[in-house]
Write a protein that binds this DNA or RNA. Sequence first.
DNA 1: TTGTAATGCGTGTTATAACACCTATATTCA
DNA 2: TGAATATAGGTGTTATAACACGCATTACAA
Lengths: 155, 155
Amino acid sequence: MPSSLRDEIKQTRPFKSLEEETLLSIDRTAALLLHRLADTFKPHDITITQYNVLRILRGAGAEGLCRNEIRDRLIAQVPDVTRLLDRLEQAGLLARERASDDRRVVTTRITTLGLALLQRLDAPVAGAQQRALGHMNATQLRTLIDLLALARTPA
Amino acid sequence: MPSSLRDEIKQTRPFKSLEEETLLSIDRTAALLLHRLADTFKPHDITITQYNVLRILRGAGAEGLCRNEIRDRLIAQVPDVTRLLDRLEQAGLLARERASDDRRVVTTRITTLGLALLQRLDAPVAGAQQRALGHMNATQLRTLIDLLALARTPA
DNA sequence: TTGTAATGCGTGTTATAACACCTATATTCA
DNA sequence: TGAATATAGGTGTTATAACACGCATTACAA
């Protein structure tokens, strides 16, 4: 049986509204699951956000992406993408090059080293995802995905 | 119609698994909604985590709570509760006192100033919660809460 | 009754998040 | 064409998150 949020946070009084309980549930679930997932990345000296950047760049292929495009594709909003990319570049996982046609643009591409790291991570990440949510069936997962999409859609 | 996560993050290829899509959905939804909610707290120079601490202490009443009890009741895991409380104490929103019976324990209580701040925040917070999720009906919210609870329950 | 472990809390340090501001290049349009 | 605006990206700074470690007090147990 799913545990009750009120029990988890030892809250004695009922929630003020269904909306409050939902927001707290989303917050807690994300924090809990992401925290567990982070352990998968830790041995590789990489954070979830950094992993997401590499995943995005792998998807973009040889053409690469500019900074703002990466920012827009990230799961969570990151206010300092420049220095996030700085760190990954310093680790040799991606390369940046100023575009010749529009000199404002800096094209970012994943390196061979970055691709190799992603490849090493693919199986452990898939395993962690299964451990996290493997106990839910397809209908439950699909319903959860749809309701979360609805929650993100403003009135 | 709820927006699709793949569209939102401009991902061309399908997700590798339903579990992956669910985890990314939870991450993105939490980041988005919490970011919006944070704007409600910003004018009062307080973060969501700090607000949660005050809310917990208001619930605890005059008896107060020790540090570890506060840590356990927080929605998200905070690794440095001591300095989180330091800041709230410095702002005069809570008071700490070393217990006389067990001198290891420090009892924390919300102050009149902290209670007043919470009272000022109650209406704006409720309003923000309604703006965030008011477009979902009770059945949808309840289903979402239950599925998130299930997601948090390890296999 | 005294060594040993457990508990509760604090501190030091580094990396990152968050916010505002700044520079360079390109575009637009009077 | 040249001033104004938009766009792409970077920098400076502060606060907080994250992690490891240390100290004081209490409980336990040989």
